[in-house]
């Protein structure tokens, strides 16, 4: 019993962590927290199911098509909901524009796809019991994604450019970095990470339109716990949340598990508004 709580807790926690990284990646280049993060996770599942089960794509093509569509949604987010409101960042209009965009995505999915959970294909057919692929797939994907991102950020030119923009937008622009294109690229990258979260977690969460708002909230908690922009914090926060949530489901039942998660979230946030691994506030004056 403990092993199955661990397996599902880590699996769902890895999905939350990936959504947390999606938030972080978008935040890094734009200073915007986008409500679309969870919806991208949802789309990863829904599109994966659509391409592979409904349209009969083979696995690799299905994955590629899914991630491509997600990336397109990410770029659209940047153009429609982020770029126009970046001028007045301090008014926090991005909260509204990305919320609206996220709702549009969710509603279109509900109407055009289904309001009932739809099956997600079994990708490899490896493992059973607690070693079933639906449990380890998200964990492996999460580890691989973090590894790849670390490589990208530390070893490649474009990754370093991302970091430069993330650290000091103005300085980066002054250095002649194509700040705007890098931002678009980071939204595409974030969308791919979100799509991967949904795709790898598809067998666990099914292809369901309501996963979006679910992931939006639970994917945000790792960011809040781990500190904004801190991917390792998001990983630790995500896994901790997944385990806590599954344990709470088991200990106090479905109704009060969400209450327990929320209460914990509020307490941690109020105690450490910058997150457990976050940095301090910027200068205001």
């Amino acid at each position: 019993m403990l092993s199955s709580i661990l397996a599902s807790g880590l699996a769902i926690g890895a999905i939350y962590a990936l959504i947390g990284i999606t938030y972080n990646t978008m935040f890094a280049t734009s200073r915007v927290m986008s409500f679309t993060a969870g919806q991208l996770g949802m789309l990863g599942g829904v599109l994966g199911s659509m391409f592979i089960l409904r349209l009969g794509f083979p696995l690799v093509a299905g994955l590629a098509a899914t991630l491509l569509c997600c990336a397109a949604v990410g770029v659209a987010t940047e153009f429609i909901a982020v770029r126009p409101v970046l001028k007045s960042l301090e008014q926090h209009l991005y909260v509204l524009s990305t919320l609206a965009f996220a709702l549009l995505i969710q509603q279109v999915t509900a109407i055009e796809w289904s309001t009932e959970p739809q099956p997600f294909p079994r990708l490899f057919g490896i493992g059973s019991g607690i070693w079933d692929e639906k449990y380890w797939l998200p964990v492996v994907t999460c580890a691989a994604t973090i590894g790849a991102l670390e490589y990208l950020y530390r070893r490649t030119l474009i990754g370093r450019a991302f970091r430069a923009v993330a650290e000091d937008n103005f300085a980066a622009r002054a250095l002649g970095l194509p700040e705007r294109n890098l931002r678009v690229a980071s939204y595409a990258l974030a969308a791919v990470v979100g799509g991967l979260a949904g795709f790898s977690g598809g067998e666990l969460m099914l292809a369901f339109f309501a996963n979006g708002s679910q992931l939006n909230f639970y994917g945000f908690i790792p960011v809040a716990l781990g500190g904004l922009g801190n991917n390792r914090g998001a990983l630790i926060g995500g896994l901790a949340l997944g385990l806590f949530q599954q344990a709470a489901n088991f200990m106090v039942g479905g109704i009060f598990a969400s209450v327990a998660v929320f209460v914990l979230f509020i307490i941690v946030l109020l105690a450490a508004p910058q997150g457990l691994f976050g940095s301090t506030v910027a200068r205001r004056v």
Partner: peptide
């Protein structure tokens, strides 16, 4: 929470609050 948290964080806490109120009403 608004006294301590930034906008997006606060938005999220109110959202979370809305879900648990109905959960408690159910329970």
């Amino acid at each position: 929470p608004a006294l301590r948290l930034r906008t997006f964080y606060f938005a999220m806490t109110t959202l979370g609050f809305a879900t648990i109120v109905t959960q408690i009403a159910l329970g």
